[in-house]
Design a protein around this nucleic acid. Structure first.
Lengths: 208, 208
DNA sequence: TGCCTTCGTGAACAACGTTCACGGAACCGG
DNA sequence: CCGGTTCCGTGAACGTTGTTCACGAAGGCA
């Protein structure tokens, strides 16, 4: 077997094992020695495939983002092309899409708690790599599309900024609502809160 | 010197030193050995004053909450007594109070980044002690008061829940906006986003 | 004062991520 | 197919963690 193939196999095995551990027991349960034992390689071999565990975690997180995108595309029907001024019905549909996206975010977080936590528990030491940021930017377009209907007057920069802010607010709701900190809310209760808050946000943005 | 006094002195010295370290270099810089050296006690002495470092961190966080309350009371003028139905002007004032509270939260986080991060970076293993939760509940009243004007029809339980949700949304905005993750926004830009989002929230809640 | 309790001491422990000299396997020119 | 060179996995070892514990010293009381 060629050397390069072995490295690729090792990389994949490590990613799979790390993903399984994170999904099952959370990021805190990911230990280099356990990982080596599960994969069947030596401890040091991990560091021939990845510079450190952070890089491995980031790769797992990229998979989580892909999973999340698949979940999100299921709740958002193909968006209507934003041509010219939007009718009131179109604006209502756009506001509804924002709510569905937020509820979809909650649903994904509730279904994949450990995976989802790993996206944010991961303390960044260095700057995030470009391929990870590109994925983030791409996902924000799902929010920007309904925003373009709700607030057609916004420039690209302003709309992107507002999309991030809407995500941040939703993330705050989900994060503090599901995490055991501050309060522990059941998913239905939390879903109701998200519908209230994001719904009010949509109304307020449409008239402002 | 009495034994009990010595323990109290040690406790205070540890809290002071831990607070200084956290405020200066963040939670990650808090090491048991450094702490013992700064305070001038043995490593094991820390564990005669606190069960573990988590308890010490929680005590420092309580001080941060007190600091935050002092900062918050400065931006919220004495709230008008919510007697009967609110006039449109009173509702506008209540919505404005919500925005001022959110901006005040941002301001505190920006002025005390390390202290503020410690409130949330701290991974909770056990359940939070009661004296800490009581403090949290007390602080939420600052949000509940303007909410009572905006939505007089809500019951106590619903209002408390909505207050927590409004805080969560604001926290998301501040957390992801200031933390180096996802985006790095300057405080003025972030303040503008908070005014837009929380403003829209206030409008949407008032009419809903 | 003398005994007993109580408490601080710091070496030791366990667990962690990461490194590195060594030994063996893959590659390649002859 | 062989021998030299290069490269790579190995796992013991290193440097840090937080936390513990037998021991020795110091306070408390008769």
């Amino acid at each position: 077997m060629r050397n390069e193939d072995r490295r690729d196999r090792l990389r994949m095995a490590l990613i799979d094992a790390a993903e399984a551990t994170i999904a099952a027991d959370g990021l805190a349960a990911l230990k280099a020695r356990d990982l080596a034992k599960e994969v069947g390689c030596a401890l040091g071999a991990i560091y021939t495939a990845f510079p450190d565990l952070d890089a491995l975690i980031l790769t797992v997180n990229l998979r989580t983002l892909a999973l999340f995108e698949r979940a999100i595309t299921e709740v958002t029907i193909a968006p209507p092309p934003p041509t010219g001024a939007a009718s009131p019905a179109e604006r209502a549909a756009a506001a509804d899409t924002l709510v569905r996206l937020a509820v979809g975010y909650l649903h994904f977080a509730a279904e994949n708690p450990a995976r989802w936590r790993a996206l944010f528990q991961h303390r960044i030491t260095q700057a995030l790599p470009d391929w990870y940021l590109v994925e983030q930017v791409r996902l924000f377009r799902y929010i920007e599309t309904p925003l373009q209907v709700l607030r057609p007057g916004l420039g690209d920069r302003e709309r992107a900024l507002l999309a991030r802010s809407l995500f941040s607010a939703t993330h705050g709701l989900v994060s503090l609502g599901l995490d055991e900190k501050l309060m522990v809310l059941s998913e239905p209760v939390l879903r109701g809160q998200i519908e209230i808050v994001v719904g009010a946000l949509g109304r307020g943005l449409a008239e402002g």
